[in-house]
């Protein structure tokens, strides 16, 4: 499809563009360790899928990767430097429940672009590109909060792309969506990776993980249980928790 991705930096291959690393990271709440001694690196592979049972710390890990939450222990680095305002800008995060502004679809994108200090004249073109990418041209002037669940999720994904991130983190973008809406989100994820943006995705949907993943990170009880190429993970998982999870018999 003839999408114009000129607004996304063209020199990115999506490979090792911005490696993000967690080293010995711990997060505790109320004396309970939610994440404990977590070491992982994101970077190789175009698409990384984060899997694990409920409470494994997947959403928390995504927030740590973007700096939305600071760890109690350990360090998070992006591109070899600890997370700060400048390298955080290169990492987008889409929350599971999109928080859209009480404005039109177009105004939501305009707001995101203004936050990136994009000049008014350039904003107009970029809004059109993002609308096309999301397949929301016909809904441009509709109130964002009146969109369907799938449309809201697509809007929040392209809103995050407005910042031209190198890495886009998605927290269960298709949870509670029907198959058709799920398909449209997966297509958008494909287009995003084709444009050179690395995608890290949390999902519970094994079918989706099979379709999208280049590599899988499997979290269990706040630790990394397994980090393998997708083919290996689904055929022959190394760790016991991952084997149990895929067989549907994981005990928390």
């Amino acid at each position: 499809m003839p999408f114009d991705f000129s607004f996304v930096r063209a020199d990115l291959s999506g490979r090792d563009c911005l490696p993000i690393e967690l080293s010995e990271v711990g997060v505790a709440k109320g004396g309970r360790a939610l994440i404990d001694d977590l070491n992982l690196s994101i970077g190789s592979g175009r698409r990384t899928v984060l899997m694990g049972p409920n409470g494994a710390g997947k959403s928390l890990t995504l927030r740590l990767l973007q700096g939305a939450i600071a760890p109690d222990k350990g360090v998070v680095t992006a591109g070899g430097r600890p997370l700060d305002a400048s390298n955080r800008k290169r990492i987008g995060l889409v929350l599971q429940r999109p928080i859209l502004l009480r404005r039109s679809v177009r105004a939501n994108l305009d707001h995101a672009l203004r936050a990136q200090r994009v000049a008014a004249s350039a904003r107009r073109d970029q809004i059109e590109e993002l609308l096309t990418l999301a397949g929301l041209e016909h809904r441009a002037d509709a109130p964002a909060r009146g969109l369907s669940g799938g449309e809201q999720q697509r809007l929040s994904i392209v809103r995050a792309l407005a910042a031209e991130p190198d890495v886009l983190l998605l927290d269960e973008p298709t949870a509670s969506l029907d198959p058709h809406a799920t398909q449209s989100i997966e297509r958008l994820i494909d287009q995003t990776t084709e444009a050179g943006v690395k995608v890290v995705l949390v999902t519970h949907d094994c079918g989706q993980a099979r379709r999208l993943a280049d590599e899988v990170l499997f979290l269990h009880q706040g630790r990394l249980a397994e980090h393998t190429p997708a083919a290996t993970f689904f055929k022959n998982p190394v760790s016991e928790p991952a084997r149990a999870y895929l067989a549907g018999r994981l005990v928390l």
Binding site: A68, G92, L95, I99, A112, A115
Partner: peptide
């Protein structure tokens, strides 16, 4: 309370 996390993620 509703918007805080989203706005921080957007780097406002």
């Amino acid at each position: 309370a509703e918007y805080d996390e989203q706005l921080r993620i957007m780097g406002l």
